[in-house]
Amino acid sequence: MNWYGCWTLYSRESRRFLNVKMQTIVAPALTAVMYLIVFRYAMGERSVPDLDVPYFNFLIPGLVMMSMMQNAFANTSSSIMVGKLMNMQIFLMMAPLTAFEVTLAFLGAAVTRAFIVAVVLLLVLVPFTDMHIEHLWMILFYGVCGSIIMGGMGMIGGMWSKTFDDMALLNNFIIMPLTFLSGVFYSVKQLPESWQAVNHFNPFFYLIDGFRHGFLNVGDTDPSQAIAIVSMATLATIFACWKLWQTGWRLKD
């Protein structure tokens, strides 16, 4: 293993977003705050049906997780996209880094960005509620897995996209619908039965629900089933990134 090289790439990918904090950390925090203000006034003190938690408390973990996932995706996809457009991915290919080391560094940086965003959001939002941490391990597990899955999808999307249009397509037609329909804003129990079933095929649903479970101690999914599904999805994502990078898919054609 070229640990030092892997570490260098990880720190490059992390410094890239730390250099533009306004865009990568402050902006997502502001967006989330605006969502909350709007929902706070729209929903008032209402509770989520069947779950018996204030809607406001229900919303915060979902928004935090959604921001984490979007930021993890943005970190890897934009890096690879800019690398392609600036022709700078060649430096990565010329360096003695194996596909596994590259994957590790990229995903590591995605998780780092997601967690920094999460901490900032929680520091801003939690003072407005009486929410507290119920299961830290669940928050960490779903946070890490969610960021890895989305960071990995960002890597694959970055490799696949030839232009910014391709990337926008991916973002608007796959990532956005999956995040919006994953139960950030509602409990699936509020949905008709048939839609509840559909939701169970959305991997993001398990991530958001599990993450929220860590804060509220209630959820829509069976925890052991969710852990199994999320673990498998995480490993599959890592494996796919590793193998695609190794073959030079759409990079070395």
Binding site: G5, T8, L9, S11
Partner: peptide, 10 residues
């Protein structure tokens, strides 16, 4: 510095 590091060289 980054390039050097990626080659595994401090």
């Amino acid at each position: 510095k980054i390039m050097s590091g990626m080659f595994g060289v401090k």
